[in-house]
Amino acid sequence: MRIDFGKPRRPQTISTVLEAVHCLRSENWPDKGGLCLRMAATALNCVSTGHITPAEAREAFTDAALEAGILDARETVH
C-alpha cells in the first residue's frame, strides 16, 4: 500500500508488517491518539503470534492510514 508520509510528506510504499510497525511508531505518524492507530498496532503485533493474518493486519493499518489522512489517493479501499 502507498501512504503519503514523513516531513515533508512523500509517497512511501509499505509492503511488510515490519514496515507498517515502523510507520506507526514513527514520530512522523500524524495522529498518535486515534482509535484505528491503536487497533492497527495491536493487529500488527498479533500477526507474529498467529492470532490474525497479515491480510487482517493490513486492513487495520489501512484504516489507521485513512484515519490519519495519509492513505495515498491512488489506493483502492474495499
Rank of each mutant, 00 (worst) to 15 (best):
E59V: 07
A55C: 12
A55V: 14
R9Q: 14
L24E: 04
T49A: 13
T13K: 10
L37G: 01
K32H: 05
L44D: 08
K32T: 06
A41H: 14
E67P: 06
A68E: 00
L24N: 03
R74E: 10
H78T: 09
H78S: 08
L44H: 13
R58D: 13
V47H: 02
A65Q: 02
I70G: 01
H51Y: 12
E56V: 09
T42P: 03
L71C: 01
A40H: 07
R10D: 03
G33K: 12
G69H: 04
E27F: 05
W29A: 01
I14K: 09
A43N: 13
R2M: 09
H78P: 13
P54F: 08
T49H: 11
I14V: 15
L44R: 15
D63S: 08
R38W: 12
K32L: 05
R25C: 03
C23K: 09
V17L: 10
A55S: 15
E59W: 00
D31T: 03
H51L: 10
G33Y: 00
L35C: 07
A57T: 15
G34R: 08
I3M: 05
H51K: 11
S26Q: 02
H78A: 09
T16N: 04
T13M: 09
A57H: 15
E67H: 08
A43Y: 15
F61E: 04
R2G: 03
R38G: 13
V21G: 01
R25K: 07
R9D: 04
H51Q: 11
T16H: 05
L44Q: 13
E19T: 14
F61A: 05
C23I: 15
G6H: 03
D72L: 06
H51I: 07
L37Q: 07
I14F: 08
A57Q: 15
G6R: 02
A64N: 06
C46W: 14
V77L: 08
W29G: 01
L66Y: 08
D4R: 04
N28D: 12
I3T: 06
H78K: 10
L24C: 04
E27M: 07
A60T: 09
T16W: 06
S15Q: 14
A64H: 08
V47N: 04
K7S: 05
V77G: 04
F5I: 01
I52N: 12
T76A: 11
A41S: 14
D72Q: 10
E67M: 08
S48N: 10
D72Y: 06
V21M: 14
E75N: 10
N45E: 15
V47Y: 00
